[in-house]
Design a protein around this nucleic acid. Sequence first.
DNA 1: ACCATTTTTGCAAGCATTTACAAAATATCA
DNA 2: TGATATTTTGTAAATGCTTGCAAAAATGGT
Lengths: 339, 339
Amino acid sequence: MRLKDLAEHLGLSQTTVSRALNGYPEVKEATRVRVSEAAAQLGYRPNASALRLATGRAGAVGLVLRGADELGPHMSEFLSGLSGRMVAQDIDIVVTTVASHQEELSAYRRLAASQRVDAMILHSPTLHDERAELLLDLKIPFVLHGRTNVTRPVAWLDIDNTGALERATSHLLDLGHRRIALLNGGKGRTFAEHRELGYMAALSARGVAFDAGLIGNAIFTDEVAFRITQSMLELRPRPTAFLAGSMMTALGVFRAIRQAGMTLGTDVSMIAHDDVFPYLNADNMYPTMSTTRSSIRLAGSRIAELLLQLLGGKPAADIHELWPVELVLRESSGPAPLF
Amino acid sequence: MRLKDLAEHLGLSQTTVSRALNGYPEVKEATRVRVSEAAAQLGYRPNASALRLATGRAGAVGLVLRGADELGPHMSEFLSGLSGRMVAQDIDIVVTTVASHQEELSAYRRLAASQRVDAMILHSPTLHDERAELLLDLKIPFVLHGRTNVTRPVAWLDIDNTGALERATSHLLDLGHRRIALLNGGKGRTFAEHRELGYMAALSARGVAFDAGLIGNAIFTDEVAFRITQSMLELRPRPTAFLAGSMMTALGVFRAIRQAGMTLGTDVSMIAHDDVFPYLNADNMYPTMSTTRSSIRLAGSRIAELLLQLLGGKPAADIHELWPVELVLRESSGPAPLF
DNA sequence: ACCATTTTTGCAAGCATTTACAAAATATCA
DNA sequence: TGATATTTTGTAAATGCTTGCAAAAATGGT
């Protein structure tokens, strides 16, 4: 069913039918109704390729994922939020996975040159991100989930990681903890650096010495967190509190604490960062988990919105959002133990 | 940089340039080289929309995901495999998320009517799957990951869930276990039904009574598995072995066993299904985990291949692959305890 | 009933590619 | 050296939509 067929069926020109369906003002109301009904009845939908060629818009946004580690629960939630909003505008999300940094850069070049997407989502940035520079050079609009240091204006949405960690760390210090472990993300990643900044700021505000041995930089998985926690618990004096970078990390820390015969919330405290996974509720854990919380799904749908604004012509320089992070205290964080 | 520009730059017609780049035989070798070099030099790539309109192919395949629960680690791995293969053919993967069954069906209709994709990937089927029927009605080619009962021919790739569970269950029976719990996927889902079939077959082959209380049907997450295991361990007589539907499930079972003060591999045994996640290695666990193993990532890349064959004209009826599942015995499965 | 507006519709030219078909250039052979 | 076969290139139509501009129809005022 092409536009032409529909037009013939109605005894109208393609022009009129097209205008009726696209809400142009110069078409008679009665005609519009007649056209809309016929279109719905016959299940007409414009051919996407033709529409894209005619309008010059790709009707799609791109998302590049590196390896499977980036395609974990965080990205899943984010993608849900993103897609939910995009589907309403009939904009596709084109997902590409790449295995290396080089592959990633050439993926952007490919997408840009073939005009497959109108814009990109850039995520998990490093402090100085080559990908952002490339996208700017390629003049392909994008919204950054996170932040990075570039001179040219960039649209971004980020959560206040520094503030979150500063508050969480301060709270643990208030409870008497002095040996506080930080299970952070990979070195160089902006969010991890920001978190470390907040952690350090809180420590130095109290004059508490910093111990590099209490910082772990790794991917956020159960297993990895389990190992790191195990070895940290063997330190003397051992840490009495843990800051876990994600809920997955928290599960690993949890396991290691239990395996060491200790009890979470009394022997050891923990505050985890909660990206709000529907299937991993901090309230339902034993003990319930104290968290710094910010919905990554919400971030996804908001970024979709920002992307639409960007495509609508709003300057990237005017698109910046820094979301505050809640600190929710539950049972896993308690006073430091007295040895 | 359009084809026209490139052609003018070379002093050739669009036709010749197009043919040179697309490997047609009737173009002189010297010309082809000259064109290819200029194209590479100037970074020319055909405009995707124009190419799609001209060829009538969408150059994309669709993947619809329901809610975030479907977008977990399994899908992530699968997607990696799929994308890795598709990128080589310059075929996009268009991802849509939907919140309800109705939304899902209309998503297919939308994709089909607008000819946004050449084919779809259908996954997580039920025994009788309405979505498969719809796709068949819409005449949109698809490859099914799993199996379903439809009369018309369907291309599919599945693993031998029945065989896997039959072997795993038999092995536990050999070790003397008589109360074996099955933590299965949602009721009605084909893979879950197939697994139950294998489980039942093994039981009845030994004349072991079936107890409905030992079967759990739920999503494969740590938390849910933890709860189910906890309550099952309170049964008297309690189960002495667990069949876990996924590695996430296994982690939950693990935790519940430990929390109950029991030891995995001696007090309780477990065999888990391992979809091979790079960050969750059965060999690195304590104790190491016995598994039924089949790489879901490999399935993803193979399905990409099958999809290409299907688009190449191979009849769906000829595209069926049933993969055997390995049984890898490690430390988590041992003899039944003597009470 | 006529003219001037205003509203509504249609014609045809894009958009960037592919690909029948025709034409030109080159090679082959007597 | 032509005539013929073969290789190489070009012309133009087609893909299905949008949209500038022109034409037709309806409306309003006198």
